[in-house]
């Protein structure tokens, strides 16, 4: 059974301090660190756990484009995938739908039958990439998957989706795209593993193959995105004139309750 994971490097825009837009009103992309899309990391973990159970399973990670600050494919090698492939593109900068088209071509060449990826919607992205990929492949997709209960060598999967009304059980038959969204708790058995020291040593210099149009062959050209960014405008931040309250101090708790009463939010 061949399985693929699509991972991406994204700017780390958590907890940005100060102005996020430069004098040109553009986001300060270059100043920010990058990270592996956290839901891609969760989807990688789901695939790795499947591989842990089924030694026959061959797992390939793919990503589009040169690394900027972090090589997400090397991060995948450090966690135990069998193979990685970088996809490249000579044309203009590519939007997410275009990336999905490249990944679809790679998935076909790899002959993978299940593809895992994360459900997260990132800055300036127009939709969920797992859905874009499924569309490009002509495959079905299961979104918001929080756990995989079963996966066998014939490509039959039992998945759990977390949606508004609770949990849904899904039975899927490969080929299928699995779009993962997991509640991230440290002790959660689904939480992603960290890089393994042994694999880090082993793969520090492993060459990473690059597939371009020559390897991927013709694939349907994307007609370009029909969206145009008009502007970024700073969102006024709500002010939190935070007060620290020492939980062990009865005096401080009492003072807090009095203030809350004065505000009329506590009777």
């Amino acid at each position: 059974m061949k399985v693929a994971v699509w991972v991406r490097e994204i700017p780390d825009t958590r907890d940005l301090i100060g102005e996020v837009l430069g004098p040109d009103s553009m986001p300060k992309w270059k100043e920010w660190e990058t990270r592996v899309d956290p839901e891609d990391l969760n989807s990688l973990e789901m695939a790795l756990q499947w591989k842990d159970r089924d030694q026959q399973l061959s797992l390939t990670a793919v990503s589009v484009g040169e690394p900027r600050k972090l090589d997400v494919l090397r991060e995948c090698l450090y966690r135990g995938v069998d193979q990685v492939v970088r996809l490249s593109w000579e044309g203009d900068s590519m939007d997410l739908v275009g990336e999905a088209g490249l990944v679809a071509a790679a998935v076909r060449r790899l002959d993978a039958r299940v593809v895992f990826t994360g459900v997260q919607l990132n800055d300036t992205e127009c939709g969920h990439k797992g859905v874009f990929l499924a569309r490009a492949l002509g495959w079905p997709v299961v979104t918001y998957v929080e756990a995989m209960e079963k996966g066998d060598a014939s490509g039959f999967l039992k998945l759990r989706r977390a949606v508004e009304k609770g949990v849904e059980l899904v039975e899927a038959k490969a080929p299928v795209v699995v779009s993962v969204g997991v509640a991230l708790l440290k002790e959660d058995p689904r939480a992603p593993r960290s890089a393994r020291a042994k694999l880090k040593l082993q793969h520090k210099k492993t060459p990473i193959p690059n597939w371009g149009l020559a390897e991927l062959g013709p694939f349907p050209e994307q007609g370009g995105c029909g969206l145009r960014i008009l502007c970024f405008r700073a969102q006024p931040q709500r002010d939190f004139p935070a007060k620290r309250v020492e939980g062990s101090s009865e005096e401080e708790l009492k003072a807090m309750l009095e203030e809350l009463r004065a505000q009329g939010v506590v009777r």
């Binding site: 940005l16 145009r228 502007c231 970024f232």
Partner: peptide, 17 residues
């Protein structure tokens, strides 16, 4: 849409179909 950790609003013109 609200983006960049809730610190900026991005305006998109819908040109395509």
């Amino acid at each position: 849409r609200l983006e960049l950790d809730g610190k900026a609003v991005v305006e998109y013109l819908l040109e395509g179909f």
